[in-house]
Design a protein around this nucleic acid. Structure first.
Length: 864
RNA sequence: GCCGAAGUGGUGGAAUGGUAGACACGCAGGUCUCAAAAACCUGUGGGACCAAAAUCCCGUGACGGUUCGAGUCCGUCCUUCGGCACCA
């Protein structure tokens, strides 16, 4: 007997779509529920079993809530900008727009065939100009608050492709496209000041319901550490070098200073001396090395600059070095070398014969660095103090002298927002050389001045808005900042979106500029301020941009006045439950929380966190328990499952495959098992239908009512595997008690099956209506979907069990089981009496004993 | 190295501190069949005893601890997986 034939499924799909049964309405008296799954990148590979896991499980939850009378928002869309389409265009010449549209058509067809209950009226696509208009708008707002800035930073340069790579395109130190080792290169890039939000991104985690390890990963990524910034003056000069350290109490152990090579070049004091050529040669050598080999270098190299720095605590002269193991983007790009108490410094000092001076008691510093705590030694001002006390004391002293202060270092860097690719949102900025020459920029315009004067007074979170304006004001007063921004203006908001132009070549230019730079007619524009000749920014946004706010657009996808209507946002936000891959819980989650907080600060969204609950489904491995990959030939195509067994089997197997958040491996035997179950349900349902028995036995009623509660709870707690198991368990009982089952029980069973196996449930429900139609005079022509029915309410009058087994332990060991009537569950005297009469108990009964009685659980007789 | 998660039958896995192994797979035997497949029925953690029923002992990575009672809580260790990492 074949089940789930696709024609049958298609019939229901069409009816469901036609009647828009999954449509959610904005503003409603019903309770709202916003359930979100990460939207996919529409690749040529189509949706895989991993997508299916997330979508089908959350779909079951969404369906259940809908049946429970809630107004459910369960939307879907496409994160369609990205490299694969561009790489394909490079090879084939076919415009990414075309391939993307094709892939979306295919993937949408898949999603529909899996019976996913998305509201297609709200479908969005990040490459749609009507969508990216608002992505650009958000960027402009960030720029106008000083949160987007252009700066020269080290980028990953692939010498073979001759392009810049984003960090995520560098795999293991190598170019993702060609495998060449990448180099570091300085280039001007747009950055977003996410570090300004670091503290809130950590502290607000307390307000949300993410799994602990997800929170930990976010906190670790931000990596906020307390320490000190200390200034070391360069002898016989006005310059100083600032270092960051987490151990200021080791300052008496400093025997050299080390600065990063990238940093060394820009230090004014290096440029004035004779040793500079030698130093620069070394710097160039290190810079030429690939990032990977520099980090892998076991031996730490360095070059003495010939300068001396003065230790602020005792005026001691210490040498200044340039070292390859000091990174520009960590701390200040300069360190104080304390060989006795830092492993890396120890190795370096050992190699270059620098003194090793112990200043914390403990360990044996003649062999290795001692990184633990202890009493300070050889340290005049803090002699004998324990580490914590010593650090506080020395910090206080340094602060008093103006030579140091308490500070924090972050692992998180500002977000490099420029990409030199075609298939992304154009960064909506214009550069005017004339204004630049006069030191003008948007920050010198009247608009900027007014922004500061009338700081958004009408927004609900006034405090944050004022804070934001205040930082902006400080930035505008900062000459270095305004000089850096000279000539830059955002595209006026009424001119958004800045649409992507057509290009002939998708290849970046030889200089590492985006392919857009070749489209002269597009690049050339007018300065929004002076009207003179100006040029557009040719960099595009990274992949993360469109996905950082898409959940907002779902609330109001067709709005052309704002990114989404405030009332609608106020109704739907926050997202109640957001599920997606583990690979996105650091960057994507952090980026979108950052954008959301910014939008909150400027009054564009009503909540300070976007997602209330975030979960992540585990990866599905191949049947060989290895990661699925084409080259290993172990990729499972979900459409094969649908074609062979039907969508319900795919759905229920994806739920049954294992604990939702755990990594699991695919098993075709498991698929067969689920399919067998569904077939059995169909046969049993047919049997019950033809019996026309209106009501089933008491026991059947009691069991089905217990099942309602269990399924409800399991779906809510993401225990999809045990939900399926519970359905199977009931079916096993049903098989042995066919005559107990009535139409009343059947109706409940298919209603609670509906979220998991919507096709079989619909089909059986319609059969049930046909069967009962004559009796109840139902209108047969009207389509009444099972998915619009209300979730059955468990009958409270049902007794838990007719008979309850009481487990009898003696001294904690299982000795007997006693059956008692359900209503006696709590009757201690009754149970004790019966238990003490039992032969097995009498034999082992201790002379003196006490009884521990836990109703409904156990009775334990303990010797005393 | 740092942070995090997890270790249960032949396999995937169940189990608010209260009958360990639900449910499923696999396997074995059986019914049906000329035969096979499908479907259905029975059994299935290890061991002792046994014709059988019954009964008993052991058992959730290792060792301790808390408790009347521990897969579950606490401590130490081992292993595996995930994230970060020349992070100052």
């Amino acid at each position: 007997m074949s089940i789930d034939n696709s024609k049958e499924n298609k019939k229901w799909e069409d009816l469901w779509l036609k009647h828009e049964i999954y449509k959610s309405t904005d503003k409603d008296k019903r309770k709202k529920r916003y359930i979100l799954v990460e939207f996919p990148y529409p690749s040529g590979e189509r949706l895989h079993v991993g997508h299916a896991r997330s979508y089908t499980c959350l779909d079951a939850v969404a369906r259940k809530h809908r049946m429970q009378g809630e107004n459910v928002l369960f939307p879907f869309g496409w994160d369609a900008f990205g490299l694969p389409a561009e790489n394909y265009a490079l090879k084939s010449g076919i415009h990414p727009r075309v391939t993307t549209a094709m892939n979306i058509t295919n993937s949408k067809e898949q999603a529909i065939s899996w019976g996913l209950s998305f509201d297609w009226n709200r479908e969005i696509n990040t490459t749609d100009p009507e969508y990216y208009k608002w992505t650009q708008w958000i960027f402009v707002q960030m720029f106008k608050h000083g949160l987007a800035y252009k700066s020269e930073i080290a980028v990953n340069w692939c010498p073979s492709c001759k392009i810049n790579l984003a960090n995520e395109e560098v795999i293991d130190g190598k170019c993702e496209r060609c495998g060449t080792e990448t180099e570091r290169r300085l280039q001007k890039q747009w950055l977003l000041r996410i570090t300004q939000y670091a503290d809130r991104l950590i502290s607000d985690l307390e307000k949300v319901d993410y799994r602990e390890d997800i929170k930990h990963q976010q906190i670790n990524w931000i990596g906020r550490k307390a320490g000190a910034l200390i200034k070391f003056q360069i002898a016989e000069s006005d310059h100083d070098v600032e270092v960051f350290t987490t151990r200021p109490e080791t300052i008496y152990g400093v025997t050299y200073l080390a600065v990063a090579p990238e940093y060394a070049e820009s230090l004014p004091w290096v440029q004035n001396r004779s040793k500079k050529e030698q130093v620069f040669e070394y710097v160039r050598k290190v810079m030429r090395m690939s990032e990977r080999s520099r980090k892998q270098e076991k031996e730490k190299t360095g070059m003495e600059t010939g300068f001396k720095a003065l230790n602020p605590v005792n005026g001691e002269k210490i040498p200044v070095w340039v070292c390859d193991y000091v990174m520009t983007d960590v701390g200040t790009g300069a360190i104080m070398g304390v060989p006795a108490h830092d492993e890396r410094d120890f190795k370096f000092a050992h190699k270059h014969n620098l003194p090793i001076r112990q200043v914390v008691a403990g360990g044996d510093v003649s062999h290795e660095a001692y990184e633990g705590e202890g009493k300070a030694m050889n340290s005049e001002l803090i002699q004998g103090l324990e580490t914590g006390e010593a650090a506080a004391r020395i910090l206080g002293w340094l602060e008093e002298k103006g030579a140091g202060k308490l500070s924090y270092s972050l692992h998180l860097r500002d977000w490099v927002f420029s990409r030199q690719h075609y298939w992304g949102e154009p960064i909506p900025m214009v550069f005017c050389p004339k204004c630049a020459g006069q030191g003008k920029s948007w920050f010198t315009t009247r608009e900027a001045q007014e922004k500061i004067r009338n700081a958004n007074i009408e927004v609900p979170n006034k405090h944050k808005a004022l804070e934001l304006t205040k930082t902006l004001e400080q930035r505008i007063l900062n000459l270095e900042f305004t000089a850096g921004m000279a000539g830059w203006y955002p595209v006026p908001e009424e001119d958004l979106p800045v649409k992507l132009p057509e290009v002939e070549k998708y290849q970046p230019t030889q200089t590492g500029e985006s392919p857009l730079a070749n489209v002269i007619s597009w690049v050339e524009t007018k300065c929004p301020e002076c009207g003179g000749k100006a040029s557009r920014e040719t960099d595009t946004m990274p992949n993360w941009a469109g996905s950082s706010w898409y959940y907002l657009r779902y609330c109001d996808p067709h709005n052309d006045k704002s990114l989404a209507d405030k009332d609608k946002l106020a109704y739907w936000l926050p997202v109640d439950w957001y599920n997606g891959g583990m690979e996105h819980v650091t960057l994507h989650l952090l980026y979108s929380r950052f954008w959301h907080k910014f939008l909150y600060d400027i009054g564009a969204v009503p909540t300070d966190e976007p997602y209330h609950k975030r979960t992540s489904h585990g990866v599905i491995l191949g049947p060989d328990r290895r990661k699925m990959s084409k080259s290993k030939g172990n990729v499972i195509n979900p459409d094969d499952v649908v074609n062979k067994y039907g969508a319900d089997t795919l759905r229920m197997y994806e739920m049954f495959i294992g604990p939702f958040e755990q990594m699991v491996s695919w098993s075709w035997e498991g698929v067969e098992g689920v399919n067998r179950y569904l077939k059995r349900v169909r046969v049993l349902a047919e049997d019950t239908l033809s019996s026309r028995r209106k009501t089933g036995s008491n026991q059947a009623w009691a069991r089905i009512n217990r099942l309602i509660v269990r399924i409800d709870k399991d779906l809510e707690e993401m225990k999809f595997n045990t939900a399926v198991a519970a359905m199977m368990e009931y079916t096993n009982w049903w098989m042995d008690h066919k005559d107990d089952m009535g139409l009343d029980g059947l109706e409940i069973y298919i209603k609670i099956l509906a979220p998991m196996a919507p096709f079989l449930a619909e089909e059986t429900y319609q059969r049930l209506r046909e069967t009962t139609a004559n009796q109840d005079n139902l209108n047969k022509n009207e389509f009444t979907s099972v998915h619009l029915q209300s979730w059955p309410k468990a009958d409270a009058s049902v007794t838990p069990e007719e008979n309850v087994t009481v487990v009898v332990q003696i001294n904690g060991k299982l000795r007997d089981r006693v059956e008692i009537p359900g209503e006696k569950t709590n009757d201690r005297n009754y149970i004790e009496k019966i238990v003490l009469e039992r032969e097995k108990v009498k034999v082992k009964l201790p002379e003196m004993y006490k009884i521990i009685f836990i109703p409904g659980k156990i009775i334990n007789i303990v010797g005393v």
